[in-house]
Computed example of a mutant assay.
Amino acid sequence: MQFLKILFWCLLAFMAAVFTVGNWTRVDIRLWNDITASVNLPLLLLVTFLAGLIPTFIYHHAVRWRLRQRLAAAERRVAVPAPLPVPEPVIPSGPLTADPLTPTAAPSA
């Protein structure tokens, strides 16, 4: 699989190099007022590509960071067990007549 990745990136670099050599022309860009800039077409395309890629890349990483933080907080909440409730002692409401632990005499017939 790593070989296919390397092959893909080499093919992409080769196509970019062929495009750059084939389109190495100067392009005049009119900025503001009477100012013009003369730049190479491949450089202009690279700058416009990066102008679209970088904000999207930053947004993507910010969303991933925020989701990682939320996931870590949720995992921390799940990892800490809630304290078990302590059962309250049962207190009888009526008067005690006999101790349930002491044996009683059997009734005589």
Rank of each mutant, 00 (worst) to 15 (best):
E88G: 02
A73G: 00
T25S: 08
L53G: 10
V80N: 07
F3R: 08
A72G: 02
I54R: 08
T20Y: 00
V80G: 00
Q2A: 10
V90H: 01
A73R: 08
P83N: 02
A105G: 12
L53Y: 15
Q2W: 07
L84N: 10
A16V: 14
L12N: 02
L41V: 04
T25I: 13
R64W: 12
Y59A: 15
L46Q: 10
T102N: 13
R77H: 11
V78S: 13
I35Q: 08
L96T: 12
I58Q: 08
T102W: 11
G22Q: 15
R30A: 12
P42T: 08
I91A: 02
I91H: 06
P95I: 03
A17L: 12
P55M: 09
A74V: 07
P85L: 13
R77A: 13
R26L: 08
I6V: 05
V80P: 00
T48G: 04
P87R: 05
L45N: 02
V86A: 10
C10Y: 04
T56Q: 12
F19M: 07
A98Q: 13
N23K: 03
A79C: 04
T102F: 14
T104L: 15
T25F: 01
L44V: 04
W65F: 15
C10N: 07
H60Y: 15
G22V: 06
F19W: 12
L11K: 05
I58S: 04
V39E: 06
M15L: 15
A74N: 09
N40R: 08
A79H: 09
W9T: 05
L45Q: 02
G22N: 14
R68L: 12
A106C: 04
I54E: 06
P42W: 04
V18A: 14
R70K: 12
F57L: 14
V21G: 00
L50M: 14
T102Q: 15
A51N: 13
R77Q: 12
W32S: 07
V63E: 14
V39A: 05
V47M: 13
S38H: 10
L46R: 11
E88N: 06
T20W: 00
P100F: 01
T48H: 06
D99A: 00
L96A: 08
P100A: 01
P55C: 09
R70H: 06
F49C: 11
M15D: 09
R30C: 03
R68K: 13
V86G: 00
R64L: 14
R70A: 11
A98C: 11
L101E: 06
I54F: 15
L4R: 02
S108V: 15
L71N: 06
E88D: 10
P81G: 02
D99G: 04
P81E: 01
F14E: 14
A16P: 00
N23M: 04
A106N: 08
R66K: 13
W32V: 09
F8K: 09
A16T: 07
V86C: 04
P100K: 02
K5I: 09
R66C: 01
P83L: 07
A106I: 07
T97F: 08
L67G: 03
A16R: 04
D28L: 09
M15P: 00
L7F: 09
L53H: 15
G22K: 13
V47C: 10
P55G: 07
V90R: 03
P83D: 03
P95R: 05
A106Q: 12
L31G: 02
P87I: 03
A51M: 14
A51T: 12
S38D: 07
T48F: 14
